[in-house]
Design a protein around this nucleic acid. Structure first.
Lengths: 126, 126
DNA sequence: CGGCATCCATACCGATACTG
DNA sequence: CAGTATCGGTATGGATGCCG
């Protein structure tokens, strides 16, 4: 990612897998989309739900997702203003593979934790 | 990720999905495992194959994967020394969901690119 | 409420030099 | 070959203050 362009980064070539991996390899992006699968949510609602995310990063991440066509941003002219974020049909197609991944995560978390403990123990006594 | 601990980061609580997402949300980690699915490879071979990765980052990433029990590191006492990295059975179970994700990436890359262009065009003329 | 602008700390990453 | 150590620039993220 560069910042030369004041707008957004321009990705210079490379294979498509690499490009998309670059985007999906974002902790918050996946988490956000997961949270939105049940329906649209407002900005501060997301901020509350996804504990630990700052408003700055939330804002940035939503903007990226919007640019990638994965999320829509709808403004309702209430007072004060209401903004809703929702998944697009494109994002809906992403749901299955992402859920497969989270299922894997939940299933194998214990194995990973065990591997870490073994690894760390091995280093301690070296 | 912190660096307070000279060893590795200690993750303080949170849900498992979050923890694992933290690890998988790593461009190089996914790429590396993808490259290793065809069989074990040596350090410099990986460095050559995964174009753009520095030897420092490669080393760090492999170490993380090893700690998580996803990759094994085997040293053969040749001269000079030979080191092979291979996926573990645990990593093999990760293969399917990851490939589903990359299939999605390749399929929907055009749609994403189109969405970006539309988005950027909209901003230009604002 | 839903942000953006700014400031500041630090995490990260590449380049380089050195070692078993 | 397969790394580790160090240094310096940069990108990133949190905290704060302000605005429509």
């Amino acid at each position: 990612m560069n910042v030369a362009n004041p707008r957004f980064d321009v990705y210079e070539d490379r294979c498509p897998t690499r490009l998309v991996l670059d985007r999906l390899a974002d902790k918050w992006a996946l988490l956000l989309m997961l949270r939105l699968t049940d329906g649209p949510l407002r900005f501060n609602q997301l901020k509350r739900d996804i504990k630990g995310i700052s408003q700055k990063v939330l804002s940035q991440t939503l903007k990226k997702l919007e640019r990638d066509g994965l999320v829509t941003r709808t403004v309702y002219p209430t007072v004060p203003v209401t903004v809703e974020y929702a998944l697009t049909p494109l994002a809906a197609t992403l749901r299955e593979p992402v859920e497969a991944l989270t299922r894997w995560a939940e299933t194998h978390m214990p194995a990973i934790a065990a591997a870490q403990q073994a690894y760390d123990a091995g280093i301690e006594t070296r």
